[in-house]
Simulated scan of single mutants.
Amino acid sequence: MAAHILLLVLLSLTSTLIHAYDPSPLQDICVADLKSAVFVNGRVCKDPKLAKADDFFFEGLDKPGNTSNNVGSAVTTVFVDQMAGLNTLGISLVRIDYAPYGETSPHTHPRATEILTVLEGTLYVGFVLSNQNNNTLISKVLNKGDVFVFPIGLIHFQANIGHIPAIAIAAFNSQNPGIITIANSVFGSNPPISDKVLAKAFQVDKKVIDYLEAQFWVNP
């Protein structure tokens, strides 16, 4: 009997982990009411009778983003804020444009796994496993038509290693995957993290931290 109870508990925990992403919808559609001031985990639904085709439509993903910034990349998002009909569907995507030798700096998505497809150019991509797995780097050079997946929550990056612009499309299993850019978060937090704390953490002189904190950090 005890073995059966233990098995049920383990299955319950496994089920919880499997569904620990965006919750499954409980109705046909839940178009986000983007004007609602109510805070919920996700977005408030508007009356389904008021839904229209434009709630499930986005145009402009064919247009390149402006990559004239410090990191040489631009991300065009199609999240729930851009397509209200994505609400509760647990999916979204982005277009990423890279200038020659541009990159998306090391970052994480706390709520989603990312799968990336290269449309043009050559990218060097990778992600880093956690401390318990020796911070192993898993990396690959991708060409047009190649696909790579970045597991949820792990630090990852993409860099254009070609002398021509590159384009990729990435999809996420969340309507709002979130992004934490490592350099921005550590050196560009508001208010700043103590430079003494960071100097000790990175084992560098405090002047190095002061210099890094003084930079203009670009969100990808």
Rank of each mutant, 00 (worst) to 15 (best):
A2H: 08
A3D: 13
H4P: 03
H4W: 08
H4L: 13
T14P: 00
T14Q: 13
A20E: 02
Y21V: 14
Q27D: 12
C30K: 03
A32T: 02
A32I: 05
D33V: 14
K35M: 13
P48M: 05
D55M: 02
F57I: 12
P64N: 07
G65W: 06
N70M: 11
S73P: 05
S73Y: 01
V75R: 03
Q82F: 11
G90E: 09
L93I: 09
L93G: 00
I96C: 09
A99N: 05
E103M: 14
P106G: 07
T108S: 00
R111T: 00
R111D: 00
T113G: 00
T113E: 01
L116C: 06
L116S: 08
T117F: 13
E120Y: 12
G121I: 08
Y124C: 00
G126V: 03
G126H: 04
N131I: 13
I138M: 15
I138D: 00
S139H: 11
K140F: 04
V141Y: 04
L142V: 13
K144M: 10
G145C: 15
G145E: 15
F148I: 06
G153D: 05
F157G: 03
Q158H: 09
N160M: 06
N160I: 09
I161Y: 03
I161H: 01
I164D: 09
I167H: 05
I167S: 05
A168P: 01
A170M: 04
I179Y: 03
I180A: 06
T181C: 03
N184A: 11
N190R: 11
I193Y: 15
S194L: 14
D195T: 10
K196P: 01
F202Y: 07
Q203Y: 09
V204W: 05
D205M: 02
K206M: 02
K207N: 06
D210K: 08
D210R: 07
L212Q: 02
A214L: 13
A214I: 08
Q215G: 11
Q215F: 15
Q215V: 08
F216H: 14
F216I: 07
V218W: 04
V218Y: 10
